[in-house]
C-alpha cells in the first residue's frame, strides 16, 4: 500500500481579517480575490484591495501558508483586459497560484508567467479525464477543483487517469455549479455569476416578514422561498429556491435544498483515494466561521494522518438551513 499523501487544507477568506484567522487556525493555503468582476464572490464590502492583498500574502507566507487568488469568472468577449491586469498583479504580489475558469485567462498565464501555477476552478466544471487532460495539455494546469457531483469511487478512478492534482470540496455551500445553474441568476437580477461574479447580489435581495413570523425571500421581482415561523432558512439563490410545480404538492426544491456539504466522515476515504487538497467553501462568511471550520478540519486531517480516529467537531450550527449532507461523495442519490 502506498503511503498516504497529506492533503492541503484550502480555506476561504473574504477579508484580510478572515485570512489571518485561516492562517492562524492552520490553513495550508487560503483562497481569496479582488474587489472586481474577476472574482466569483464579487460581493459589495467583501474581498481585497491590491494593498490588502499584498499585506495578506506577506502575512500568509510568514505563517507558512500559500495564497491562491481566485480569477475564476469568465471575461465577456473582447473584455479580457481586467483579468490580465489581475493576473499581472497576482504575479507581482507573489501569489502561489491563480484559480481560473476561462481558457483566455489560462492562456495568458501560460504565456506570460509560466512559473505561476494554474488551478482550474470548479466553475470550469471539468470532471472527465478527457476534459482535464485538455486543460493540462494546453495550459499546464497543475490542479483541478472538481465539481460536487462525483463519488469517492469516481474520484479514485479519475486520479488514476489524469496527470494533475485534484482538489475536492469538503465543507460549505452545497451548490453544484453545473448544468448552467450559475446562469439562472442572470434571468432574475440582470447580473451574471459567471461574468460579473455576483450570484444573487445583495442589492437584489429582500426579506419580507409576515405577522405570523414567516419570512419570504425575494430575489429581483420574484419570491423564491417562504419559510415558516419555525423553519430554518437558506441562501437567497435560485438554485436553492422552492417552487410550485404540477408534479408536486406544495413548494418543491427543484434544484437543491438549503443544505451544506459536510464531508468530515468521508475524509479517510478521500485521503485513501489520493485527493491532494480539501477545499472549505465560504468566502462570504465571517471570520468566526473561518476560525471554527478551519480549526475543526485541521484537527480532523491531522488525526487521520497520525493514524488516529478523526476528531469531528459538530459544525451543524454553521450549516445552511442547519442541515448537512455528504452529497455526491457518498451517493449520487443525495436528495
Amino acid at each position: 500500500m502506498n503511503a498516504m499523501v497529506k492533503p492541503e487544507l484550502i480555506c476561504p477568506a473574504g477579508t484580510p481579517a478572515a485570512l489571518r484567522s485561516a492562517v492562524d487556525a492552520g490553513a495550508d493555503a487560503v483562497y481569496c480575490g479582488y474587489q472586481n468582476a474577476t472574482n466569483a464572490r464579487n460581493f459589495v464590502g467583501l474581498n481585497f484591495t491590491p494593498e490588502e492583498m499584498e499585506k495578506s500574502i506577506r502575512y500568509a507566507h510568514d505563517g507558512g501558508t500559500k495564497v491562491l487568488i481566485t480569477l475564476n469568472t469568465f471575461p465577456p468577449a473582447g473584455k479580457v483586459e481586467l483579468w490580465k491586469e489581475m493576473v499581472d498583479l497576482s504575479a507581482r504580489l507573489g501569489a502561489d497560484a491563480c484559480i481560473v475558469a476561462d481558457i483566455a485567462v489560462a492562456a495568458y498565464i501560460r504565456d506570460t508567467y509560466p512559473d505561476l501555477r494554474i488551478h482550474l476552478s470548479v466553475q470550469a466544471a471539468a470532471s472527465s479525464p478527457e476534459a482535464i487532460e485538455y486543460y493540462v495539455r494546453e495550459f499546464g494546469v497543475k490542479r483541478v477543483v472538481l465539481p460536487r457531483i462525483m463519488t469517492v469511487s469516481e474520484i479514485r478512478g479519475l486520479l488514476k487517469e489524469i496527470p494533475c492534482e485534484v482538489e475536492t470540496f469538503i465543507f460549505g455551500n452545497h451548490g453544484l455549479m453545473v448544468e448552467g445553474r450559475c446562469s439562472l441568476t442572470n434571468y432574475v437580477t440582470g447580473q451574471s455569476t459567471n461574468m460579473d461574479g455576483a450570484c444573487s447580489p445583495a442589492a437584489c435581495v429582500k426579506y419580507e416578514r409576515a405577522d405570523d413570523g414567516s419570512m419570504s425571500t425575494i430575489l429581483g421581482d420574484y419570491m423564491i422561498d417562504r419559510f415558516g415561523p419555525e423553519e430554518t432558512a437558506g441562501y437567497p439563490t435560485i438554485c436553492k429556491g422552492r417552487y410550485k410545480c404540477d408534479a408536486r404538492d406544495g413548494g418543491y426544491y427543484a434544484f437543491e435544498e438549503p443544505i451544506s456539504l459536510n464531508a468530515s466522515t468521508m475524509l479517510p476515504d478521500l485521503i485513501n483515494a489520493g485527493v491532494h487538497a480539501f477545499k472549505i467553501e465560504g468566502r462570504q462568511r465571517s471570520r468566526a466561521y473561518v476560525k471554527k471550520v478551519v480549526a475543526a478540519f485541521r484537527e480532523a486531517v491531522d488525526s487521520i494522518m497520525a493514524g488516529q480516529e478523526p476528531k469531528l467537531a459538530d459544525l451543524v450550527a454553521l450549516t445552511e438551513g442547519q442541515k448537512q449532507t455528504e452529497g455526491a461523495l457518498k451517493t449520487k442519490k443525495w436528495r
Partner: peptide, 13 residues
C-alpha cells in the same frame, strides 16, 4: 465579539 457567524444566526432565524 467575532465569535458568532451572522449567516448561521440568519439560517437559524
Amino acid at each position: 465579539d467575532t465569535e458568532q457567524d451572522g449567516d448561521a444566526l440568519f439560517f437559524s432565524r
